[in-house]
């Protein structure tokens, strides 16, 4: 099993390095310094900041004549047949290698806007995002799978219809409506009308003592937003699984309906469940921008949106690279979980 995991990780490394390169190139299509400094920046100040922030260095190793000005970092290598040799920019000082190395050490540059290390911003915003998204994912998945099973169990009957009607209703309502009404009727109204200080209107504190007060309402809103989609998806999975031959065999052998549903069917439906959860997993890191804005939660989504709005290049580049890493890690985790649930995957 471990060799399987190792193989997956090793295979993902070049993919990740390629993604980083693509991200870096894509973010440099338009000059990030000029965008950040704005329309009144002079070419001199743009050049000065480019040099100060290391963006005057080549992205990748290049063989060329060194640019005008200080030539200190460039190395001249003797090449037979080439007079004066060939100049090369030291590969370890290129933007690409520097960035990959800083990512590996999690020692990222400073934010241009906030003048503090991006790694520190990452660390301080991951927690708040997870404090909401992780419980929300756990709750949503467990409830949605249960609803899916129940719907499939009572397929075509009143329970199924009611559950699916509620799911479609939930899917039809905008996230913003859930948030605005949830905040009003979940936090404000009970306090004003009934004197019950159940949830905070806004704010963040994830200590054990205050988590429920500050974070449970956003979790419940997140649950309400996702439950409809997920329940319908899991119902479809369960219904499809219910038509398989092994279910017919189990029924023929006299197994009880609950045993068929919760033992045989659920176990075999794990692959699509894992796939669905794993697809969602990276988004628990990115957080919900709207929830974070309305509830004043200093999470990743809000940090990234602010960075984009202020053209804070180091934050955008680092966050994008970290999100890519989380995506790749969740893919590896998915494969590993497949292998655990279904040994045939590992063998193939």
């Amino acid at each position: 099993m471990w060799s399987y995991v190792l193989r997956k990780i090793l295979a993902a490394i070049p993919v990740y390095l390629g993604i980083i390169l693509l991200v870096m190139l894509a973010l440099r299509v338009n000059d990030p310094i000029a965008a950040y400094l704005g329309k009144n920046a002079t070419p001199e100040s743009i050049g000065q900041y480019r040099s100060q922030w290391g963006l005057d260095r080549p992205v990748l190793p290049v063989w060329a004549t060194p640019p005008e000005g200080p030539v200190e970092p460039w190395l001249t290598l003797p090449v037979p047949g080439v007079e004066g040799g060939l100049s090369v920019f030291p590969p370890w000082r290129t933007q690409y290698v520097s960035f990959v190395w800083s990512l590996a050490r999690l020692d990222l540059n400073n934010s241009w806007e906030q003048k503090r290390p991006v790694a520190q911003m990452l660390r301080s915003s991951v927690g708040p995002s997870l404090a909401v998204t992780l419980p929300a994912l756990a709750l949503t998945t467990s409830i949605a799978v249960t609803v899916g099973l129940l719907s499939a169990y009572f397929r075509g009957r009143l329970t199924d219809r009611v559950l699916m009607f509620a799911s479609v209703l939930g899917m039809s309502v905008s996230v913003l409506v859930f948030i605005i009404l949830g905040q009003y009727f979940g936090a404000y109204w009970p306090r004003q009308a009934l004197g019950l200080n159940v949830f905070a209107i806004e704010g963040y504190d994830a200590t054990a003592r205050n988590w429920a007060y500050y974070c449970l309402l956003p979790v419940l809103i997140s649950l309400a937003v996702s439950l409809g989609y997920d329940a319908r998806f899991y119902r479809a999975v369960m219904v499809e699984e219910g038509n398989r031959d092994y279910i017919t065999t189990a029924r023929a052998k006299g197994a009880s309906k609950p045993k068929i549903m919760f033992v045989h069917m659920l176990k075999n439906a794990m692959i699509p469940i894992i796939t669905h959860v794993m697809i969602t997993l990276p988004f628990i890191i990115t957080g919900s921008i709207l929830l974070e804005q309305y509830f004043n939660i200093p999470g990743m989504g809000r940090t990234l949106i602010t960075a984009i709005a202020s053209k804070d290049f180091p934050v955008i580049q680092s966050f994008t690279a970290v999100f890519a890493l989380v995506f790749i890690a969740s893919n590896i985790l998915t494969d590993v979980l497949y292998a655990l649930v279904d040994p045939r995957v590992r063998l193939s």
């Binding site: 009934l194 200080n197 159940v198 949830f199 003592r209 205050n210 449970l216």
Partner: peptide
């Protein structure tokens, strides 16, 4: 009230 009773300790403490 039901929700409040469940969460009262947190809110009251705060």
């Amino acid at each position: 009230v039901v929700a409040g009773l469940w969460l009262a300790p947190a809110g009251a403490a705060l």
